[in-house]
Design a binder for these strands. Structure first.
Length: 559
RNA sequence: GUCCCAGUGGGGUAAUGGAUAUCCUUUGGGCUUGCGGAGCCCAAAAUCCGGGUUCGACUCCCGGCUGGGACGCCA
């Protein structure tokens, strides 16, 4: 609803500015108003008058008779402050009661690629950041009315996989281990062996050549390793509430000839030169030329990625790639090379690294914290907390709530920080569930549910006729305004792709609900207030549950 | 060396160029004859350094410093 308020402010402000020339309405959020404009500052310069005077003049020209969602506007010095009307507050509650469906639908198809970890071992905490950022964005975009498809791009052609496949030919996967962990064991052991015996490297290279050429037996060996690993990875993702619509194998693009087609087209359209038998592409603005074909004729990651993006671009309106910071140069090369092929560029969400206090993560060196280990520990920790507080619950409910709280805390922790912030992962800190994170928001939701349950038990109906004008306390007004901003938030994140803003909103909403709870009795209020407040509690419950859903966090009815 | 990113109270973190810099944690103090205390209130404490642009800079520009990353016929 806040979006509609903002639109009305823009409309009336434009009318009031009819006699001025301006570039922008300069609408800003403000703590002194529901929304404000600072346009008087820049007009002051042009018209050589005091900004305060101009602000007053603009306010005097606002068509107050057209206000519906606006109650009034005032000039506070050079600022023009707008305030919401009672009708806005009423309409906010009504629209939430009617459901939070996106106002715009069928806005086109978006393919978002995320996680895409190599199939050489389990997901670690770095992949987790990628997966959770990607998953939250996918959920936001769905809310915003897009048709979203999530893809996991499976690297099955890299040297890493060849090493794992080679290793799998010499030792068996441990049968008693989770599949992806068993693959990692083999991969790490194989790497160690190759370091000691470089004579085995030929065998690895031969595997790579045979696989690209489509040798049946080799393809089968690869598939076994990759699928084994992915089985485990999918289990982990499922626990985290993450699902990919499609797993796309890199190898397909080589075998289908799509990669060759890309290389040939680049030779015609780009600045390509020969270095021995390898092909180098010079891209504008990037010093380093891009190798698009190896001397031995096999393909490279970037070239295969070009073919993948060309394929994707034909299946959607927007492409979004969630990449680690180490892929930034690649993303620039990708954009430039795609332009040569007349393929639209993807939008990139680039996030900074997650490292351990002991240094950077490395699957090969076995230096990582697996997502599974983290999930295991955090759920244990959450179970302890539940047991501490809710001894009355049975052994079905307790672990169920512990899972919701544990996974919630983990997801919230990963998404709450701006993607361009480097994270040093601290195990104890991640396990500290008592912080104001997901459990805080979940608790507010459970509390709202509890009030509604108690009301139902007393036979008070929430869908009674109610008078929203009775909601006059500060904590009530602030809560309603916060509720109204859900659509505004979704619209914002849809364009700036910054998922940490969702986490911040969720926490703030829970805070406002707690304040309302503290200052306004619901069930113990007189009948008219009780009715109106129950509606407000129900609306808060709906928005809390929706914002948690966007974060991929379960909203427990009790905890 | 070149390029990219980050630098905000003791630690972590937020802030489309706008009014009194957010929140967590920490430390200290307080709130329950209340619908669930995983709650609420109060206090302490911060924009790396130096220039510049601007009516106005955490935010933009230039130069440093510190930390991370990229610069493979790896992915």
């Amino acid at each position: 609803m806040f979006l509609e308020f903002k639109a009305e402010v823009e409309k009336v402000l434009k009318q009031a500015l009819a006699s001025y020339e301006y570039k922008d309405l300069e609408i800003v959020e403000s703590e002194h108003a529901d929304i404000a404009s600072t346009v008087a500052f820049s007009l002051a310069r042009v018209y050589k008058r005091a900004p305060k005077e101009i602000a007053e003049d603009i306010v005097n020209h606002l068509p107050a008779e057209e206000y519906t969602l606006i109650s009034h506007a005032v000039a506070a010095g050079p600022y023009i402050n707008f305030y919401v009307s009672d009708f806005f507050l009423h309409k906010t509650l009504q629209s939430i009661k009617e459901g939070l469906e996106p106002t715009e639908k069928n806005r086109g198809k978006i393919i978002i690629e995320h996680t895409s970890a190599n199939a050489d071992g389990p997901l670690h905490i770095g992949h987790l950041r990628n997966a959770i950022i990607g998953d939250v964005l996918a959920r936001v975009l769905k809310r915003a009315g897009f048709d979203v498809e999530t893809q996991y791009y499976v690297n099955d052609l890299g040297r890493q996989i060849a090493v794992a496949v080679w290793g799998a030919g010499r030792m068996a996967f441990a049968a008693d281990k989770k599949a992806d962990h068993a693959v990692a064991d083999v991969y790490i052991a194989a790497n160690r062996e190759l370091e000691e015996h470089s004579e085995y490297l030929n065998a690895v290279e031969e595997l790579m050549r045979k696989y690209e050429a489509g040798d049946d037996a080799t393809v089968k060996r690869y598939e076994t390793v990759v699928n084994t690993c992915l089985t485990g990875v999918k289990e982990t993702l499922k626990r985290l509430n993450i699902k990919h619509d499609l797993f796309v194998m890199e190898g397909e693009f080589v075998r289908s000839g799509a990669v060759d087609a890309v290389v040939n087209e680049l030779m015609q359209k780009g600045d390509v030169k020969l270095d021995g038998t390898a092909l180098l592409l010079q891209l504008e603005g990037i010093e380093k030329e891009l190798v698009i074909k190896r001397s031995d004729g096999t393909s490279l990651y970037t070239t295969r990625d070009l073919a993948y993006h060309r394929w994707k671009s034909n299946r959607c309106d927007r492409m979004i790639d969630v990449f680690g910071k180490d892929h930034e140069l690649v993303s620039q090369q990708l954009t430039k090379a795609l332009a040569l092929l007349s393929v639209k560029a993807p939008e990139y969400v680039i996030f900074e690294f997650v490292s351990l206090p002991s240094g950077s993560l490395s699957t090969r060196a076995g230096r990582y914290i697996s997502a599974d280990e983290l999930i295991e520990k955090i759920e244990e920790r959450a179970y302890e907390e539940v047991e501490k507080r809710r001894d009355d619950l049975d052994e079905v409910k307790k672990p169920e709530i512990a899972r919701m709280v544990g996974i919630g805390a983990l997801r919230y922790d990963m998404v709450k920080v701006s993607p361009d912030k480097h994270i040093v992962f601290d195990f104890d800190d991640a396990l500290d569930i008592e912080k104001k994170g997901a459990p805080f928001v979940q608790y507010s939701h459970a509390r709202a549910c509890s009030i509604l349950r108690a009301a139902a038990a007393k036979g008070v109906l929430t869908d009674d006729v109610y008078d929203s004008a009775l909601l006059r306390e500060d904590s009530e007004l602030e809560l309603i305004k916060m509720l109204s901003k859900f659509d505004y938030l979704i619209a914002g994140v849809t364009s700036d792709l910054k998922p940490h803003r969702i986490a911040k909103y969720a926490r703030e909403l829970a805070e406002y609900f707690n304040l309302f709870y503290r200052y306004c009795p619901v069930l113990n209020a007189d009948e008219e207030h009780r009715k109106a407040r129950l509606v407000l509690v129900d609306c808060a419950r709906v928005v809390l549950s929706n914002v948690l859903d966007v974060l991929g966090i379960k909203a427990p009815e009790e905890m």
